[in-house]
């Protein structure tokens, strides 16, 4: 592969997929000079490479010949927080939720646009490189100052209820990453609420009314139907 061993200080990306055509296409598409690419074709090879290589980002197909991709995520999550972006033809929301709950950071359904994939990789890399989140999140007209617990829209402070603020803060600290309903409910309301998604929907709706210009076309808090929510990443 073109730049597999070119430079060691480029961020290492591990591509796990058993389809030669996909590997070839990704090899070309990601050959932008930004990354150093590595490949694995089986789950076990991926686990070994994750240990040996310590990649900055892992692109993972779920349908591997030797083990299920979700299992690969689980095993990696036992010891590493490396961002994992799932690339899969499985488009059912249950599959997505399962992968995300197991610890994947993002999920792209095949076929996907290369631009989209690059954007997601960059977001993941940023989150992987900076350990502590920025105290201030700023995107378009929204500003969230985590240090001061302040939220500004078009420079005007917005009053949020404590729950709404917690929700927004959670999204901000994971900006760009999909958070499943279950994950959010567990973090904000506790395990007992995992089966009560309407609490979350009402709060998201309220939050959108307060920070979005047009709540029916949200620009900040994006819905992943059937899966969860994602706060747009600072590009």
């Amino acid at each position: 592969m073109p730049n597999e061993n070119k430079s060691t200080n480029l961020p290492r990306i591990l591509v796990v997929d058993d389809e030669a055509a996909i590997q070839r296409f990704l090899g070309t598409a990601l050959d932008t000079g930004e990354f150093s690419l590595h490949q694995a074709e089986t789950g076990h090879a991926a686990l070994a490479a994750a240990v040996a290589l310590k990649p900055e980002v892992i692109l993972l197909d779920l349908g591997l010949p030797d083990m299920d991709g979700v299992e690969v995520i689980r095993r990696i999550r036992e010891w590493s927080q490396v961002p994992i972006i799932v690339l899969s033809v499985r488009e059912r929301e249950d599959d997505k939720v399962q992968a995300l709950d197991a610890g994947a950071d993002d999920y792209l359904t095949k076929p996907f646009g290369v631009g989209e994939l690059l954007a997601r990789i960059r977001v993941a890399l940023r989150r992987s490189l900076q350990q502590a989140p920025e105290p201030v999140y700023r995107i378009d007209e929204l500003e969230v100052d985590l240090g001061r617990r302040r939220v500004l829209v078009r420079n005007a402070e917005v009053q949020l209820t404590p729950t709404e603020y917690d929700l927004l803060r959670l999204l901000v600290t994971h900006a760009g990453k999909v958070l499943t309903h279950g994950q959010i409910l567990k973090q904000i309301w506790g395990t007992a609420y995992v089966e009560q998604p309407h609490v979350l929907r009402v709060n998201i709706s309220n939050l959108r009314h307060k920070i979005e210009q047009d709540p029916s076309r949200p620009r900040y808090i994006l819905t992943e139907p059937g899966v969860g929510y994602r706060l747009r990443a600072v590009s």
Binding site: P197, R201, I204, S205, S216, L222, T223
Partner: peptide
């Protein structure tokens, strides 16, 4: 339980 507004937003998105 779904928010209809959210539904519309998703379709538009």
């Amino acid at each position: 339980p779904c928010d209809v507004q959210d539904l519309a937003g998703c379709a538009l998105a």
